[in-house]
Design a protein around this nucleic acid. Sequence first.
DNA 1: GAATAAATCAATCATTTGTTTGAAATTAAG
DNA 2: CTTAATTTCAAACAAATGATTGATTTATTC
Lengths: 200, 200
Amino acid sequence: MPRETPEHLKAAVEQLLLAKGEAGLTLRDITEMAGANVAAVAYHFKSKDNLVTLVFAEAIDEVTNLQAKRIEALPGDHTLRQLIEVWLHPLLSASGPDDRESRLWLIIQRGAAEKSPGLMANMMRAAEPVEQTLLPLLARHLPHLSMDEIAFRHNAVLGGLSGLVSSPIGMAVANSAENPRAKELLIAWILGGLEGPAAL
Amino acid sequence: MPRETPEHLKAAVEQLLLAKGEAGLTLRDITEMAGANVAAVAYHFKSKDNLVTLVFAEAIDEVTNLQAKRIEALPGDHTLRQLIEVWLHPLLSASGPDDRESRLWLIIQRGAAEKSPGLMANMMRAAEPVEQTLLPLLARHLPHLSMDEIAFRHNAVLGGLSGLVSSPIGMAVANSAENPRAKELLIAWILGGLEGPAAL
DNA sequence: GAATAAATCAATCATTTGTTTGAAATTAAG
DNA sequence: CTTAATTTCAAACAAATGATTGATTTATTC
């Protein structure tokens, strides 16, 4: 029942995106890792670009859905720290390097850092729904900031993490199950950046 | 007096690194923009990799030297905000998109974001001297933090900026001459992240 | 100004890239 | 079992990449 080749191909793309990013992603690396023929990509997915764009799109959808559910499950009287832990759950509370959501999140953040064309195609679409529920929640905890400044800091934290995840620090945090200290350092920094006084 | 070909080549690499990053940097793009023959790169610099590594190295040196001079010129009773403005001067106080130091800084940050191999070779070398003078200065303004946490937040801000510079926000800040508001928003966020309470 | 060194150039090379082809193998349907 | 559809495969393709060659031009030196 070799009906599983497409899944193998997508899994290989995920693994290679996580390891090397989209820049150094070759057809033959993909097919070799998937145990498939080079022509399999063109047969099952129209082209290589199609495949990686699809992988990015599905990663965004999966992470976004999980995020939405976590936000919905937040109690009405949650703290800002709780909100941050939900927001950055894939990074802060990964069960380990094999945690699927954490891997997908890292793939997305890395793709954002290197402006992967396959990611940019679907980036804004899925970012919106979360932001539209997240920004108002953030606003409730940051009454001293205007909506503009809240949006700015929200983007700053996201952009900041995309720079961090590919750094030694980010890797330490991603293994926060074995590194609770790194997680605390990161949360403290994010909290300070959000709660700090408004701009002049 | 065609003694200027090497300079043209290096200038072309700078411009292309800023526009597209190292990933999409081709020999023929470089030589065409420099008005030189394809063989010129191998003749003047041993190889393409050599050339871009050299450009990165010289960019780091130039920026590092300017940073060191600015830090040295700081008054003894400077504020944390003044220190940050010196630290992030290439981003915060660029005279415009044609400001050379700002361009070099953006090239370095972008190279860091996408883990350019040509940059990684010389990254740590030049990062050290500035950090060794910058971290103690930061410590004087952040007595509530341990040295470990100061180093963490220093890296976090740097990593954060490398994620930001290639985002819409970063671009707005880079044009801070025409966008003083973006500069204030960024400084306020950075200040909050540094001055916030220590981790648990 | 002749001789030597340095620099440029068009052409070519060997690899690597994504894609395509047509035959062979596998699976599904009647 | 036979036939038809689906999937796999080895091979080849065109395009692009970095590098190299050997002749030609330009600059320097005596």
